[in-house]
Design a protein around this nucleic acid. Structure first.
Length: 528
RNA sequence: GGCCCGUUCGUCUAGGGGUUAGGACGUAUCCCUUUCACGGAUGAAACACGGGUUCGAUUCCCGUACGGGCUACCA
């Protein structure tokens, strides 16, 4: 409905050949390398990726590193690595290159000034010479005067040092003397600015509430606002899908497109709802990593300042397909009751219109459930690889055939691949101790007798199938006039050391009669 | 404070002027299982509030409350 209206509206004012709907869909994920990419960023990337693939378009990664003071080494590589782990691969970007290279804004630095100058010459922007201190003074003064929102705008700019207030020759002199300056956007005094967001519909803002944003910083770098608009234009971006934190500055961007003469090709905006902390106070931030007890990063990240490493979803044992599925459904749904989606399924079903408007709380339980679902989908052979790895780490070995069988036996008991070993460890080594609660309540003279009888019954066999083991146990107990329910727990305890676990007869079959007999004798010896 | 965005079970959500308000996670009980888990069944659990509009509003409109975002020469 909203989309329909928006198409109708834009076809009204946009020449047909320039209509965004007729252009190839091109979207970008534009992170700044100021730290690790958190899981909300991964979701933004994912939605961009899905939208691009759904529409047979291109997905571009552009690095927005215009703030040199916040640059964090390694952050950029981390972003690629994390996205690659999730299966999100760019069609164009720093790594892969592409027709609009470079894709790192610091390398595009020389490009931006001409557009800023274009705006200055057209009267849409101006030079400002105010120092940080002077700006502080201005804000303090306005605060003291109880001005509702102290900002650099159509009114206050007249009290500051800029090319709107200073004589032309002084401005020229200051520029020529090499004095530091910024270029600010000249926001009009009275203008309704409207934009049609794909998720939120029409959003209207009055220009009086906007401030004269800095476009070019004194170090010669553009700010986000300028760089973003210029690059989206140059890279022929058709849809800007980004977090809701950008909604307040979107009207400024709309103005920029207008003043630069690019309204015909202005991308459509879609501002995504934010990922919230589970307790519902504030957006999920990078700092929540350890304090909340679950990962907020895709991959482990080491903080440069504290030197602390925080585990990511990967290190905590999450499968990438589970993380992907979980993330996709955090704010989006297909309208069907399907819960499990592969990447291809997501691409097939995805649409921006079905993204919700409200912020989404992060529920780690659901993530665990997804992981369990995907773990269950894995073949025994795949799971055996995980188990084998952990076995080796624990200093244990076994033949591949057994490992694979064990993986199959315990997989439905695991949420994570790393649960496989703890769930099956007793198969690979004899119990060193016996669960005390179970031995206290189940180990008695009858149990002991049953164990001894079973050991001798088993002693004649060289191998046994689970079904045969079941029959043998049954017959042995019946001959001794014992009820299975009374002694089975004790038999399990004797063989595995535990009171709970996978089907005992399968375990007996896997272990083989000789090992089982040995364990039964061992138990009698140790438990008395 | 100002501006902007939002509000259906605890959580993610479907739905939409008249419905027993549907599903999933979690949770409770039961079944299966000699155990735990898996699986199955059943249950508890929601339209923030107040005004309109209407024969009728959870759904549309307006307020209020609450939540969130933004308010830098950060992105």
């Amino acid at each position: 409905m909203v989309l329909f209206f928006c198409q109708f509206y834009s076809s009204f004012i946009v020449p047909r050949h320039l209509h965004s709907m007729s252009r190839e869909v091109r979207v970008r994920f534009a992170p700044s390398p100021t730290g690790s990419l958190h899981i909300g960023g991964v979701r933004t990337a994912l939605y961009n990726y899905l939208f691009a693939k759904k529409n047979h378009g291109k997905f571009i990664i552009r690095i927005e590193d215009t703030d040199q003071t916040r640059f964090v080494p390694g952050a950029e590589a981390y972003i690629y690595e994390a996205l690659r782990w999730c299966g999100i691969v760019a069609d164009e970007g720093v790594e892969k290159g592409g027709p609009f290279a470079p894709y790192r804004q610091s390398e595009r630095k020389a490009l931006y000034m001409q557009y800023a100058m274009q705006l200055v010459e057209a009267g849409y922007a101006y030079y400002a010479f105010d120092t940080a201190e002077e700006l502080d003074v201005m804000r303090e003064r306005l605060k003291a005067a109880k001005v509702v929102s102290p900002q650099y705008n159509a009114i206050t700019r007249m009290t500051m040092k800029n090319s709107q207030t200073l004589p032309e020759d002084e401005v020229k002199a200051r520029l020529e003397s090499g004095e530091q300056y910024v270029i600010r956007l000249k926001i009009p005094r009275k203008e309704e600015i409207r934009l049609n967001d794909m998720i939120r519909g029409w959003v209207m803002v009055h220009s009086a509430t906007l401030d004269d944003k800095v476009l070019m910083k004194s170090d010669g770098m553009p700010t986000y606002h300028l760089a973003n608009v210029v690059d989206d234009y140059l890279m022929q971006i058709t849809h800007v899908v980004r977090g809701e934190e950008w909604l307040p500055s979107a009207p400024t961007h709309v103005l920029l497109y207008k003043y630069l003469g690019w309204v015909e090709v202005m991308p459509q905006f879609a501002h995504l709802p934010l990922l919230l902390k589970p307790d519902g106070n504030g957006k999920l931030s990078k700092r929540d990593g350890e304090s909340m007890g679950f990962p907020v990063f895709p991959l482990a990240w080491t903080d440069q300042e504290t030197g602390k490493t925080m585990a990511g979803f990967k290190e905590d044992g999450y499968l990438p397909e589970a993380v992907l599925n979980f993330l996709a459904l955090l704010g989006w749904n297909s309208g069907t009751q399907q819960e499990l989606y592969s990447m291809d399924d997501l691409i097939e079903h995805f649409s921006i219109e079905r993204i919700g408007k409200a912020g989404t709380k992060f529920d780690i339980n659901k993530a665990k459930w997804f992981n369990q679902q995907y773990l269950l989908k894995k073949s025994n052979a795949e799971l055996a690889e995980f188990l084998k790895h952990d076995l080796l780490q624990a200093g244990l070995t076994a033949n591949d055939e057994l490992i694979e069988k064990v993986a199959g036996l315990v997989k439905e008991r695991a949420t994570f691949a790393k649960d496989l070993l703890p769930e099956s460890r007793f198969i690979f080594e004899r119990p060193a101790e016996y669960d005390e609660q179970v031995s206290a309540s189940k180990w008695n003279e009858d149990a002991k007798k049953a164990v001894i009888l079973l050991a001798s019954a088993l002693a004649t066999k060289s191998s046994i199938a689970a079904a045969d083991a079941k029959e043998l146990v049954h017959n042995t107990l019946e001959a001794a006039e014992m009820k299975p329910g009374k002694v089975m727990q004790a038999i399990r305890l004797a063989i595995t050391g535990k009171g709970a676990g996978p089907d005992l007869m399968e375990v007996v079959s896997l272990l083989g009669p000789a090992e089982v007999v040995a364990r039964l004798h061992l138990a009698v010896e140790k438990l008395g």
